[in-house]
Design a protein around this nucleic acid. Sequence first.
DNA 1: TCTGGGGTCCTAGGACCC
DNA 2: TCTGGGGTCCTAGGACCC
Length: 427
Amino acid sequence: MLFTTYLSGIIEFMFCLVDGNNFYVSCERVFKPYLIGKPVIVLSNNDGCVVSRSQEAKDLGIKMGQPYHQCRRCVELNNVQVMSSNYALYADISERMMRLLQTLTPDCEVYSIDESFLYFHHTQYSSWHEQGRAIKAMIQQHLGIPVGVGFGKTKTLAKLANKLAKQAHEGVCCIHDYDLNKLLKNIALEAIWGVASGISKRLKRQGIYNAYHLREAPLRIVRSSCHSYGETLKFELMGISVIPLTCEKSPNKQIISSRSFGVGLSDKASLFGALTENIIRATEKLRAGRLKTKQWYVFLQSSRFKPGYCHHGVDIMHTHYTSVTAEIVSHSLNSMQRYVTSDHVYTKSGIILTDLQLVSQIQPTLFEPSYDRMDALMKACDDINHKWGRGTITLSQVHQPKQRWKMKQNQRSQAYSTQWNDILTVQ
DNA sequence: TCTGGGGTCCTAGGACCC
DNA sequence: TCTGGGGTCCTAGGACCC
C-alpha cells in the first residue's frame, strides 16, 4: 500500500475536487437562460427516470432516480420544466470544463462527466479558500456552469469538503479550516465516498455510526467487517492518502451498450434492428479506444416490473480479436435466433464487450485472416460518420424497418455546440 | 401506460493441479 | 470408521460510483 508522506506545515499539498452543480440542468440553462431560477429536471433515456434536478426541483421533493411517472403530478402542479437528456451537449461542455481545469495543474484526474480531482503542491493564493473561489469564477466566466470546490489532504476528504461546500460555504470548502473532529462526528457513514447501505450496515454492527467513529476505530475492527476496503476508508479519513490520483485514463476493461425500447417488442426485424444498433455503438467505442474484443455477451430482456420477467443472453467466444462491426453483428444475431420467437416480449437489448485488448498489443495467430482491409474500411467509415454525423454510413446490412425501438425523447434540447444545424441564431 | 445506462473493483467459492 | 494441504485461476455476484 502506498502512503503519501504527510508532514504538516512542511509540504503544503492539497487534493481538490471540482464538481458541476446539478450538471445536466446547468448545461441546459447555459443555452436556455430563462430556466434559471425555475424548477428544472432532466430525464434519463426514454424519458424514464429523473437524473438531474435543479435546487428548486430538489426543494419540491423530487428524488434522484425517481421514475418520471411517479412525480408527473408534482411536475404539473409546480410547473417544473422537463428536459430529455442530451448527452452530446453535456459531454461537450464537460470536455471544455476539464480542459480549463487542466490549465491549473497537470495533476488532474477526470473522474466523471461532471467532476475532476486536482492535486496542488502549494497555492499562490492567500488561502485554499481563495484558490477555490478563483476556480469557481473561472468556470463560471468561461462556461456559465456553477461548480462546487472542495479541498482535503486525501481524495476522500476533498470529496467530503465538496459536499459541505454545496451546503453552506458559498460553493468552496477546505475541510482543514474546520475542527475536523467535530465535523466528522456529524457526518453519517453514507455521506462518505464509497460507503452505501451495504457497508454502512456492516460497520454499524461493529458500533461504528459516523465518520469520526470510522476514523478512530481499531484497524482489526474495520478489517473484520470490510476487509482492506475499510482500512482504506479509515486512512483516508485520517488524512493519509491511500487512493492515488490517476491522471492517465487506462483502457476500458469492458464496453456496454444497451437500451430500453420504450415499448415491448417481439418481432424479429425490430429486435435484430435494436441489437444491431447496440453493436454499432459498442464497436464504435471499441475502435475509438484503439481496442479489439475476443469475447462478448448479447442479451434481450423483458421488463423487470412485469410478471414473467425473462433475460436471454449468449456468451460468444471468438477465435481472434476483432473490431469489425459486421462480423460481431453476424455472430451475435445468429446466436440469438433461438430466443427471437413471438412468445417473448422484450423491452431491452444490449451487448457487453469483454476480453478487450489494445490493438498495439495484440499478437496475431498464424492462421487468422488478415484484418488490414477491413480495419481500413472501418476507419474510413468512422471518419466519415465523425465528420458528417452518426449514421451517415451504416455499418451493418441488417434491415431496419420502422425503428420501433427508438427512444422516447420528447423534450430534447438541440445539440448547440456539436451540430452545425443546431447552432443558435443571434438576431 | 410510464421504471436509465455505463463503469470498476473485490471476494467467495468452485475447479483443478501437484 | 478414519478421507491432506497448499496453491492458482476463473467466474459470478455483490457493492459501489456517476
